[in-house]
Design a protein around this nucleic acid. Structure first.
Lengths: 248, 248
DNA sequence: TGTTGTGAACGAGTTCACAGCC
DNA sequence: GGCTGTGAACTCGTTCACAACA
């Protein structure tokens, strides 16, 4: 009962949305391994979360599990892909073909997980015309024309920080409403445009903090919390199947 | 009063820790621009958060602000770098020099923000001996020797997913207690080891969900929430200074 | 019996609003 | 007057524990 209406996309908690892709990856692994059905416990383990959280997450989709049995793997894949909007392979524009841009352009994982890199852009004349993974690098001034032709809805910024805001402005101007930003800076965008940020150095700095904390625990701080490192985010569970490669 | 003891590293909320690097980046920008002091409002804007959150975050460090004036930029940089453990430049091992690994090896941002890539590893014989950004690629079997020599405490995994768990096991075996994982899979590690994960496809899938949601809003779902896209994470604030480049 | 779906308790994180201080 | 530091209210997310059900 209370069949959660599968139209209420706006009601999905953000934290749940962030985990759905992980469930999807785990489900694909299970499907390849020949499982038709999986319990919340099994899927949770494969995805690296606990089963209560997984069940609550799935219940938000109006879930399709069977008590006493589990979830139908194929059906759940279909459901999650629908919710994430992956049924239409979205066209992505990648701006900045430096070191990181090259790697992203060649990353097979995008194609296999619902995306198509539709065009590459840069501002450096030396790069224009170069072909990377079958795609030609265009000058950023061609963005309006190509964005329209290819129906670009998502942009990836892999430029130096100094150029990122200008690029974001141009992306927004051609109608892009989702941006993945690899440049280490804050972007200012109009309401209605989503920005997600990935900063490699920040991730390392967070790890560094935990290293520092662990080291400090040895030197007996005044607070006697000498227990074995509370709150460690040690993942558990079987490491899932072999998804596609990250590197070469 | 109640001078929060700056030894209580364990008491910092995780969410605060995750934002400190962003504050640090903003502070460096302000310092370069010649500011000696900054208000919570100013720093918050530069870092893309609101000022109440910033003040609460800083208060956890036992903060060094002056009422009516603001924060001393240089002092705050020093404090945050200390807390994050960046005063000692940590040695990082990078495993997997494929597409992404190459980009990471050449990423100047690591060096400028407190880290030193001390060694590169791969399992592919074709890659061994190659020199990337001044570093030679070693066979993964040399990890124990080099990890000891270089005092490696953090490992970065940029291998295909199928190899990631084995690499993680080897890193843990040589005493690494912090891992940044770019492979799209769940890692299983012992307690006391921190794993952070960056999955590029997942970020795009989250953006895709929001695109889908925005598009669905047009087709008038039964729930009459036709307001202008609630919960968009539009960043605001000046885009900070030019930090180092991400790309080439 | 085994497993899902979910109300209820709990905890973490954010925002508010203002006292305290320069 | 202006700005920080913080208790208190509130929101969001997680975990528990169990009723509903195949």
């Amino acid at each position: 009962m209370s069949q959660h209406r599968p139209g209420g996309l706006s009601e999905l908690p953000e934290a749940t949305v962030a985990r759905l892709p992980e469930y999807l990856r785990a489900l694909h692994g299970l499907a390849e391994a020949g499982h038709d059905t999986v319990s919340s416990e099994g899927l949770a383990t494969a995805a690296g979360v606990n089963s209560a959280k997984l069940r609550k997450d799935l219940s938000h989709l109006g879930s399709y599990g069977t008590r006493g049995v589990g979830y139908d793997v194929a059906l759940l894949i279909e459901q999650i892909e629908y919710v994430l909007g992956l049924t239409q392979h979205r066209a992505v524009a990648l701006v900045g073909v430096g070191n990181l841009g090259h790697a992203l352009a060649g990353y097979a994982g995008f194609a296999t997980r619902g995306f198509r890199i539709a065009a590459l852009f840069d501002a450096d004349p030396a790069q224009i015309g170069e072909v990377i993974s079958g795609l030609t690098v265009h000058h950023i001034r061609e963005l309006p024309r190509i964005a329209a032709e290819e129906s670009i809805s998502i942009g990836v910024i892999a430029t130096p920080a100094g150029a990122a805001q200008a690029v974001a402005d141009q992306l927004v101007a051609v109608g892009v409403t989702g941006i993945l930003n690899f440049a280490p800076c804050v972007l200012s965008v109009p309401e209605g445009v989503d920005v997600r940020k990935v900063d490699l150095a920040i991730e390392l700095q967070i790890l560094s903090f935990h290293e520092h904390r662990k080291a400090a625990a040895g030197s007996a701080g005044p607070t006697a919390s000498l227990t074995a490192l509370p709150g460690g985010m040690a993942g558990n569970g079987a490491s899932g199947g072999n998804q596609e490669a990250v590197g070469s």
